[in-house]
Amino acid sequence: MEINKTEAALTLAAIDAAGARTTQLQCYRRFAPFMILWGAIWLLANSVSDLAPDQSGTVWLALTLLGATASWWIGWRQHAAVAEGSTPRTRLDQGWRWMLCFLVIVAFQVAALAVLAPSDARQQDTFSSMFWTFLYMAVGCWIGWRLFAIGLVATLLILLGYFGVHSHYFLYMGCVSGGALMAGGLWLRRL
């Protein structure tokens, strides 16, 4: 059986489309556990900020450290599951890269907040949260529309809360924005 140039081009296009879909699926699945994890952390930490403001700083710090450690572990596990010739050393390296990447972003946030000096905790919380949701949108431009949509919905919910919710703002942020991230993470896991 011989095929002509047009048929060959169509076949290559079909191969590219199938491969792109698989790549997108894998990226979504890599992102999903991080999104669920940090959605849960937002939910818990913001709820504490609302219900027990005195404990807020300690709880945010503890949960952020817990989240960073869990992110390292997730990165380590993901690498172990897919890497050919994976060794404990390469898995450790991958885990550290994820954690370092996270710490770089957190360091930027701390530096930005020091420069911008928000006047209250609401502004600080909104800035930090929106930074991540915009990051999801930016990454989504490359990886896939679902990630972009999750970032967009979470950003709109944050802005709605900042401008429209005046009492129990942190509880709103925890439940709605944290919930949106967790739901988004579950959505990313679906085909």
Partner: peptide
């Protein structure tokens, strides 16, 4: 061809479940 293209795009030693492959294709 689609099965091969889908599996070829998997990273490293990753595998795909039968049900996922069925939905993708």
């Amino acid at each position: 061809l689609k099965i091969m293209a889908t599996l070829n795009a998997l990273r490293g030693a990753a595998k795909l479940e039968f049900t996922e492959l069925r939905k993708l294709l």
